[in-house]
Structure formats: structure tokens, C-alpha cells
């Protein structure tokens, strides 16, 4: 029972973790992309439809990643090349993604999806308590953990990561040092898009293997909140994602128990928890000031 609950928490946390990890890299490079929800839902509809048509969940996941990255390029072109307002453009990406995905997915509504199987390491997955949790989950769960480790290592132990952070902290100085600010930001945005696409693909291929319009249900926004909550640190994103996974699974179990609490109040819990957590984190001004990438959301036009 306990193990089953922890596994469902991992399933709820994985898409949040992946999308937030991508956005963390984007924000570390100094760009605020509010289009996570839109990229995620595009990933979900692509993942579902490609997997449905080819029968292969892996092709679906791959297509979701590619479409997420391509879709984010639209945001990149506007904010980096045309220097548009990042907040407004991110919102535009979300609105466009929600609209386009509804259109693309219309013919897939109600169709049975393709569910990605789980990895089962022989013998190890039968260990008591932790067997299935550590050795018997879906492949993307392992990818999400590897992604967390990879992003931490990249940002804090490689030269490229240092360069990316310097671009996010002071793009004018970075530019003066000859660093190609815009090229780096393009790559970061595409990475973020790929991650959001993968997270969306996960929703449509593992979490609930079917297509429902608007099925990301605010998860992209929660991922954005997680990055703030984590004060731009990968390890804390992991913790935050599992905390939110626990809240959303907890409320589902509470609904199933039939407590005399309105189900709508329980459904609202993840959103209310996001607000409360954001308040608790942001009231500590020093913590947020120290970690926020200093150029976050600032427009950059290189002087030549």
C-alpha cells in the first residue's frame, strides 16, 4: 500500500520535475519563458497522436521532445531576435499551444492511448518496499532523475554551465567578454522546450494514456512556480516536484476515501499549495535576491 502510493506520487511528480528542470536552465540563462504550459500541451498532443498512429510510445516521446523544442523556437525568435516582451510572448505561446493542441487533438479525443510499459529489472524489482520504486518504474522516471543530476552537474561543474549562468546574471558583461549571449539563450530555450515537450508526452503516454483537451491542467504553471520555489537550484526542484506530487496524489486519495469535504476543495489544493509555498519562499527577500538570475526577463540588444 505504502509503496503503491509512493509510486503514484513519483508518477505525478515526474512531469513537473522534467518541465521545471528545463525551465530552470532557461531562467538561469536569463530568459523567463511563461510558455511552459503551451509547450507541454503541444508535447502531450504530439506524443499521443504519434504513438497512436505508429503504435510505438517511444516514437511518441521522441516526437513530443522535438515538437516541444521547435515550438519553443517561436518564443526564442520573438524574444531574442525581435526583442519582444518576454512575459507577453510567453503568455502568447501558452495561449497558442492550448489552441493549436485542441485543434490537432480533436480527432484523437476518446481514442485508447498507447501506454508506455515499465522497466523491470529482474530480481531487484521484487525487493520488499523499494523494489518497484527503484527498479520497476517507467523509463521516463529514470530519465527525469538522470536529468536532475545532469543539469546540476552541467550548471555547476562545467565551463559551459558557468558561461550559461554568467549570461543569465549579466548579459552585458558576458557580451563584452565575447560570449555569444543570444546563441546560448536560443539553446537554453530549446532545451527548455524539449523538456516541456517530454513532460507533456509523459502525461499522454504514462500518466493518463489518452488525449483530453487541456489535459496539462496548469502543470506547466506549477512547474514555473517550482523553479521560483527551488530558488533556481536543481536539487530543490526535485524536492519541490515530489512535494507537489504528494499533494496532488494525497487529494485524490482523500477524494476516494469519501471524506465530507467538497471534492472541488481537494482539487484546488495543489493550486492553493502553490500560492502558499510561493508566499513563504518569496517573503524571504535575501534568499530570492541572492539566487535570482540578475538579468532574468531583461531585454537584450547587443550593441555593435
Amino acid at each position: 500500500m505504502f509503496e503503491a502510493i509512493v509510486i503514484t506520487i513519483a508518477t505525478a511528480a515526474t512531469p513537473l520535475l522534467i518541465a521545471a528542470m528545463g525551465e530552470l536552465v532557461v531562467e538561469r540563462s536569463g530568459v523567463l519563458n511563461l510558455g511552459v504550459e503551451g509547450m507541454m500541451i503541444m508535447g502531450a498532443v504530439t506524443g499521443f497522436s504519434v504513438a497512436y498512429m505508429t503504435g510505438s510510445p517511444w516514437l511518441g516521446v521522441l516526437a513530443a521532445i522535438v515538437v516541444g523544442a521547435l515550438f519553443s523556437l517561436l518564443f526564442g525568435f520573438l524574444t531574442l531576435t525581435l526583442v519582444t516582451n518576454q512575459v507577453a510572448t510567453g503568455l502568447a505561446l501558452t495561449l497558442l499551444g492550448l489552441g493549436l493542441s485542441g485543434m490537432i487533438g480533436e480527432s484523437f479525443v476518446g481514442l485508447p492511448g498507447v501506454k508506455m510499459g515499465t522497466v523491470n529489472v529482474p530480481y531487484l524489482s521484487e525487493l520488499p518496499y523499494v523494489g518497484r520504486l527503484l527498479f520497476g518504474q517507467d523509463p521516463i522516471f529514470y530519465i527525469s532523475i538522470a536529468l536532475t543530476i545532469g543539469v546540476s552537474w552541467f550548471l555547476f561543474y562545467t565551463k559551459a554551465g558557468l558561461t550559461l549562468r554568467s549570461v543569465g546574471d549579466n548579459h552585458a558583461s558576458a557580451h563584452a567578454l565575447g560570449i555569444r549571449v543570444i546563441a546560448i539563450r536560443y539553446m537554453a530555450i530549446m532545451f527548455g522546450g524539449a523538456c516541456a515537450g517530454l513532460a507533456g508526452g509523459y502525461l499522454a503516454l504514462v500518466y493518463v494514456p489518452q488525449w483530453v483537451e487541456g489535459m496539462s491542467a496548469g502543470r506547466g504553471w506549477i512547474a514555473l512556480a517550482l523553479v521560483v520555489f527551488a530558488s533556481w537550484r536543481p536539487g530543490r526542484v526535485l524536492a519541490g516536484a515530489y512535494l507537489f506530487g504528494a499533494v496532488s496524489i494525497g487529494q485524490l486519495h482523500a477524494q476516494a476515501l469519501g471524506w465530507p469535504i467538497p471534492s472541488q476543495l481537494l482539487s484546488a489544493l495543489p493550486y492553493l499549495a502553490t500560492i502558499i509555498v510561493l508566499v513563504l519562499i518569496s517573503r524571504n527577500k535575501r534568499l530570492t535576491m541572492v539566487n535570482t538570475p540578475a538579468s532574468l526577463g531583461q531585454p537584450f540588444v547587443p550593441d555593435r
Partner: peptide, 10 residues
Amino acid sequence: NTNEILTSLM
């Protein structure tokens, strides 16, 4: 000092 974008959306 809470980010108004996220709270208003939630």
C-alpha cells in the same frame, strides 16, 4: 514580494 503572474493564474 510574491510573483503576481503565478498567484493570479493559480
